[in-house]
């Protein structure tokens, strides 16, 4: 294979340019501008003046927002992985019903998150569809805008579990059948086959989708804004509130908040890449 690759390196580099240049430009300009604004070097009015004020003022709130966002993203990712894996195994194990589940699950992929959030709101809010179905019990918990972000997490888990199932099915459906047959002839039970064959096979795709889901839920605005409580605020809600604030000085803080969420996301992606590489070198 190396024989084929060596002379084509330069051509391959040219191939990469159309994709690499727009990304580098957009991301580079965007991060630079955000950083400059967060340090007061691009004010609306008056001369640019360096100040780290946006980073230090209300630093504890910034930390709390970061923790809140991390909590929401972690729980959502975990739930999405579990439900997504169950979906995928069900589709693999049960032929006819599995196909229906697969089709329905794939059908939720095109639903934008903003609509998903509206739908979950209608379902879970006070006097929402679920409470009405249950006959309006007095003790109905505060799911929408409650302290634990239940509705927000439900929306992410609902949308992203379908995504996880799609990725897992796409990566293992070809190889898993033969291996499971082999395991079955060797006397493995259904549970053993899932734990010993399906789970290890899907581990890499689970890891990749975990990173994607985590980063997506960390940076997603619509659901957190529509379904979250007044306080504490996740990072995107805080950033957009400050960005659209009528207080001119708030935009610096908005940029600082945006950069914090970029940093957290980048850290998670790097961890995921390291874990994947470790996994690959072990196997």
């Amino acid at each position: 294979m190396t024989r084929r690759r060596a002379p084509t390196t330069r051509r391959a580099a040219l191939l990469a340019l159309p994709a690499v240049v727009p990304i580098v430009l957009v991301v580079g300009v965007s991060l630079t501008a955000a950083a400059l604004q967060s340090f007061g070097l691009m004010p609306f009015i008056g001369p640019p003046q360096f100040s780290a004020d946006a980073w230090t003022r209300d630093a504890d709130e910034l930390v709390r927002s970061t923790l809140t966002s991390t909590y929401v993203a972690m729980v959502s990712t975990l739930l999405s992985l579990v439900v997504g894996f169950v979906l995928a195994t069900y589709v693999l194990a049960i032929p006819r019903m599995g196909r229906i589940v697969e089709a329905l699950s794939a059908a939720t992929i095109p639903i934008p998150h903003v609509i998903g959030a509206g739908a979950i709101g209608l379902l879970l809010s006070d006097s929402g569809f679920l409470e009405r179905l249950l006959g309006m019990p007095e003790a109905f918990p505060a799911l929408v805008s409650g302290p634990w972000f239940v509705a927000v997490i439900a929306e992410y888990a609902w949308k992203e579990s379908a995504f996880v199932a799609l990725v897992v099915l796409g990566s293992i459906s070809r190889s898993v059948g033969d291996l499971c047959d082999a395991a079955a002839t060797l006397g493995a039970s259904a549970g053993q086959r899932i734990v010993r064959v399906v789970l290890p096979l899907s581990a890499p795709s689970l890891a990749v989708s975990a990173a994607i889901v985590f980063v997506y839920t960390l940076g997603s605005y619509e659901a957190a804004w529509l379904l979250g409580p007044t306080s504490p605020e996740p990072l995107p809600v805080r950033a957009v509130r400050l960005f659209t604030s009528v207080d001119l000085a708030a935009r610096q803080q908005a940029m600082a908040t945006a950069l914090v969420s970029v940093a957290v996301s980048a850290a998670v992606i790097i961890i995921a890449i390291l874990v994947l590489r470790r996994h690959r070198s072990l196997s």
């Binding site: 990469a16 994709a19 690499v20 990304i23 580098v24 957009v26 991301v27 300009v29 965007s30 991060l31 630079t32 501008a33 955000a34 604004q37 691009m42 994607i212 980063v215 997506y216 960390l218 940076g219 997603s220 605005y221 990072l235 995107p236 950033a239 957009v240 960005f243 908005a254 940029m255 945006a258 950069l259 969420s261 970029v262 996301s265 980048a266 998670v268 992606i269």
Partner: peptide
């Protein structure tokens, strides 16, 4: 490096990307 660049936009929440690039 190319792989990293191709993944980079994932790490940047859309709202952050937009807030920065708008002025440019």
């Amino acid at each position: 490096f190319v792989e990293f660049v191709l993944l980079a936009p994932l790490a940047i929440p859309p709202f952050a990307l937009v807030m920065g690039i708008n002025v440019a």
